[in-house]
Simulated scan of single mutants.
Amino acid sequence: MNHVVAEPVIATPYETRVHFLGRARRTATPLRRDFVQKPRSEAVRPSVLSTFVKNRDHRGLLAYLFILAVTSKENADGWTTRLDSRVWARCFGTTENTSSDAASLGAVSKILQRLEERRLIEVQRVSRSEAAVTLLREDGSGRLYTRPGLDNKDAHIQLPHEFWTNELDAHLKLPGLAMLLVLMCEPAWFGLASERYPAWYGWSADTAERGYKELLTHQLADFRERIVKAPAAPLGYTKTHQYKLAPPFRHAPSTGGKTGRPDAVPAGGKEVGNNVEQSEPSTAASPQAG
């Protein structure tokens, strides 16, 4: 009797990511705001996110966000996740764009090396096939990781796991992902003068505009144009483009009218925090610790 050997059913990268997200037992990933932009007390505002954008490292940014998402508990090795390198490859999607297992694993090694060079993680080879990845603080300082919202009041956002389960990681390009993170750090109806993006975030206004267009295309944000009286402007007014995230993504809460930087864009409201408070109350919920 001839026995037919069935071909193995292999888990896809999407199924692998969903599995480990479920194992993390939470619905969102906390991410310190310092990753997106340094505090106002710093002379230079662009932070680690700008390094990914300037180096066009979309895959590296997605890999880092996924490592944060699945490393949900501290253990004897710190905030560490241990996986077979072939599993890391599926999580990072390198199996989809390479011609061989060796090339896929090589891509994983290069991704982890870049993240380690940016002092976001530490990597230890547990065996020939297993890699242990330990989180460091999100600001690239190389300090030990602590979970924001636990025993501290560090400003942070919550990236919903719907980002992964709705496959936005596959649909948003790097500018869209960068501006999604920026908007999550700001109050609703965020607007900023185009010349401010390089100094505040480390990338051009053109990159920001491409990112906004992506968010609008995928219905992840709403847009409005505000006309503001400006006596010194040639036409006596200026136009401000403002953006508000759609659920399940949430804006940072308004800071309640505290005075912000003098270079914030007038948007029909008060200057607060880093930028401009919306001229109508925000319905966005305040980020909570995940």
Rank of each mutant, 00 (worst) to 15 (best):
T134Q: 13
V70G: 01
I227L: 07
R40D: 11
R59L: 14
D154I: 09
G236T: 03
D154M: 06
L83H: 15
L177G: 01
E195G: 05
G22M: 12
T71N: 10
A155H: 12
R118K: 11
A252W: 15
A246V: 13
F52Y: 15
V5Q: 11
V36N: 03
V70W: 05
D101G: 06
F52D: 01
R45G: 00
K213A: 15
G268F: 08
L61A: 03
E195L: 07
E162V: 04
V48A: 01
M184E: 05
A170H: 11
A178T: 12
G236F: 03
P39M: 07
G60I: 03
L177F: 03
S72P: 02
W79D: 02
D84T: 08
T71L: 04
A205V: 02
L115V: 03
R86N: 08
A188H: 05
K270Y: 14
K244C: 15
T94V: 12
R82G: 08
N275R: 12
A102F: 13
D222H: 11
G60D: 04
E74P: 01
A63I: 04
V53Y: 01
L68K: 13
T259Q: 13
M1K: 06
V182D: 01
S47D: 04
L216I: 15
L192F: 00
R33E: 14
D169Q: 04
M184Y: 05
V108T: 06
L215F: 09
Q124D: 10
P198S: 10
Q113H: 12
S279P: 00
S282G: 15
W203E: 00
T283V: 13
Y243G: 01
L61I: 02
R137E: 11
F92R: 02
S254V: 07
I157C: 04
A131K: 13
Q219R: 15
A24F: 09
S85F: 00
R25E: 14
A63L: 05
R261N: 07
N75W: 08
G268H: 06
E277D: 13
S254E: 15
D206G: 07
V276T: 14
K110V: 11
A246I: 08
G176F: 10
K173A: 14
W189K: 03
R143F: 08
I157N: 03
H3M: 07
V53T: 00
E15M: 07
E122G: 00
N2Q: 11
V36T: 05
Y243F: 15
N274T: 06
A131C: 06
